[in-house]
Design a binder for these strands. Structure first.
Length: 356
DNA sequence: TCTGGGGTCCTAGGACCC
DNA sequence: TCTGGGGTCCTAGGACCC
């Protein structure tokens, strides 16, 4: 039986939700992100804004200079999460094998449904129609026999696209594309590969054995396999969370003092509350600091037993901060991350039984 | 142009135990 | 001839993704 993986990617998701909720924004360039004074970046640009060169992760000040008549909207993550739940619900009505990658993206294993009369494309078209009818959003879909090819395919005809890679044709489909489309090839790896003379996915596929590994380390083998259309990773419907954190960039750099301590308090409590909401405890607290010059450091401390008390987490973070502070330091960001997680209830129980 | 906030995974060195 | 190796845990930094 043919394996079919579907990758779904909602188009300009946050901006599309804003346009949906506020009809005045429809047809206009919309940029979701904080204000330039807050040193924010673009979270999502609507398709109307993209011709001006506005892109995700771009500093907001620059984005608004490129597209001065754009409407800037601060993100409303709770609302996006709500819409996301509705969309994931539609996905789950097709198959239990849904792996969300973020609020706006998911892998589905639709092998079973694709064996029906409409085939994989029929399933994809039905999903697109239901998402449009029930939420008003458009979704781009890629279909292939594996995850990496499906993901690349979903990106090829955005927005509102549907691209199916014929089974067995994965390598041929990928070969002419720039290698940067492969998952895991970012700016650094991309440059290293380019310097070595590799330009397309096909170049990676055809490289001599061990060549890619010598450039990129252990990821090389996996990358070359993906370039050849081989990727056996299953769709994983549930994955264990590894960390919960909160961080904040300040509008202006801050020296040590009451303001910095208050910011630390806010992120530590924010992380702790979300930890408790998820019924988790952590054994390790990580403090993250970004200096005015953008250099970023982390310092961590582990305890013998897991904690979730906000006061305790804050205390850990404060003691880590005291240990690194120097008189002349100024900071642009502070963050707290809770890691080494254990389930709240279970952690208690196992600790209890271990103590007996 | 002046660089977010939420994450995951990997590497490498050191401590410690057997 | 003060020398080995494996396993595990911890820490810090960095690449990458959305």
């Amino acid at each position: 039986v043919q394996r079919w993986i579907l990758h779904a990617d909602l188009d300009a998701f946050y901006a599309a939700v804003e346009q949906l909720d506020n009809p005045e924004l429809r047809g206009k360039p919309v940029i979701v992100g904080g204000p330039p004074e807050a040193r924010a970046v673009v979270t999502t640009a609507s398709y109307e804004a993209r011709p001006y060169g506005v892109r995700s992760a771009m500093p907001m000040g620059r984005a608004l200079r490129l597209c001065p008549h754009a409407v800037r909207v601060s993100p409303r993550f709770d609302r996006y999460a709500e819409v996301s739940r509705a969309v994931m619900g539609i996905f789950r009505s097709v198959t239990d094998l849904v792996e969300p990658l973020s609020l706006d993206e998911a892998f589905l294993d639709i092998s079973e449904a694709a064996a029906g009369p409409g085939g994989a494309e029929g399933v994809a078209r039905a999903i697109k129609q239901r998402v449009r009818d029930e939420t008003g959003l458009t979704v781009s879909i890629g279909l292939a026999a594996n995850k990496s090819a499906a993901k690349v395919a979903s990106d090829m005809r955005k927005p509102d696209g549907l691209v199916a890679v014929p089974p067995g044709g994965e390598a041929e489909f990928l070969a002419p594309l720039p290698m940067r489309v492969l998952w895991g090839v970012g700016p650094k790896a991309g440059q290293a590969l380019l310097d070595a003379g590799f330009r397309t996915v096909g170049d990676i596929a055809a490289a001599a054995p061990g060549r890619i590994e010598s450039l990129l380390g252990s990821r090389g083998a996996m990358l070359q396999a993906m370039a050849r259309g081989i990727d056996e990773r299953p769709v994983e419907a549930s994955q264990e969370r590894k960390s919960v954190g909160a961080e904040n960039t300040f509008p202006h750099d801050l020296p040590d003092g009451p303001e910095l301590r208050e910011e630390l308090r806010r992120v530590a409590l924010g992380a702790a509350v979300r930890l408790q909401e998820k019924r988790l405890r952590c054994r390790t607290v990580v403090l993250k600091l970004r200096y005015a010059g953008f250099k970023t450091i982390t310092r961590r401390a582990s305890r013998p037993y897991p904690i979730d008390d906000p006061a305790e987490i804050l205390q850990q973070a404060e003691s880590l901060l005291r240990a690194v502070l120097k008189e002349e330091d100024r900071f642009r960001l502070i963050g707290v991350q809770c890691t080494n997680l254990v389930g709240g209830q279970l952690g208690q129980l196992s600790l209890f039984s271990a103590a007996r």
